[in-house]
Design a protein around this nucleic acid. Structure first.
Length: 214
DNA sequence: AACTCGGGGCA
DNA sequence: TGCCCAGAGTT
């Protein structure tokens, strides 16, 4: 297992590899980010960005999403997978934003995850990127990368991965660490063919040394 | 913990 | 063609 210092160092190396690591979902306000992250479930951010400009021009507010039948929203996001669930969740989410949160995106994890279609991952991204609240969102990339390196144990649950990262990183690094881990996983330490041969973290990577026979 | 939803992108 | 994608809800 990585020590705190070793974990921080790994995140810093990732920052050197990806100095521009940040949320790639285009958005202008917390509401747009919330909807965009909901859409990104099991879809690439690139495909989400292809529909959101038109989507937010057509539906700039929760009220606008509720003014049309759910089929209309499905049609607007049909190039993204799981669009039936997502369209339904968007309207359910907008309904609750209006009824219980005065039409605004709430700023606590508990309130966010009470929204239909919003889980811990989406909540943490909104907290971190829209409101600047320290949070680490564990997705498939974060889970894979931290387990490969040895920052977390292979058997750790998503919650345990999150807890470990929160324990081994200062709060001030949580949000940027999240983005760096994702960029590292998305563009370098990919699921199928990690670039161990050119990886600056190879010497301290549990799985990488195995793969390279070191 | 396992299963399901789902069309597009890419090899 | 076959496999994967910055997940969440249900059982």
């Amino acid at each position: 297992m990585f020590s705190k210092a070793k974990t921080i160092h790994a995140i810093e190396v990732m920052g050197e590899m990806f100095p521009n690591a940040k949320c790639e979902l285009t958005h202008k306000n917390p509401f747009e980010l919330l909807i965009a992250v909901m859409l990104s479930a099991q879809a690439t951010d690139i495909s989400v960005n292809k529909v959101t400009p038109h989507l937010f021009e057509k539906y700039p507010t929760p009220e606008a999403f509720l003014a049309v039948p759910v089929e209309a929203i499905m049609d607007d996001i049909k190039t993204i997978g799981l669009f039936r669930n997502k369209a339904r969740h968007i309207q359910g989410c907008c309904r609750k934003l209006i009824d219980e949160f005065n039409g605004e995106v709430p700023k606590t994890r508990k309130e966010l995850t009470s929204l239909p279609g919003v889980g811990i991952k989406t909540a943490n991204v909104v907290l971190g990127d829209a409101f600047g609240v320290p949070a680490i969102a564990v997705d498939t990339h974060v889970e894979r990368v931290t387990k490969r390196l040895g920052i977390c144990r292979l058997k750790d649950s998503v919650g345990e991965v999150e807890a470990t990262l929160m324990k081994k990183l200062p709060e001030s690094m949580w949000v940027e660490a999240h983005h760096r881990l994702i960029f590292f996983g998305r563009y370098h330490c990919t699921a199928r063919s990690p670039k161990c041969d050119i990886c600056p973290l190879l010497e301290e990577c549990r799985e990488g040394k195995q793969r390279m026979g070191i």
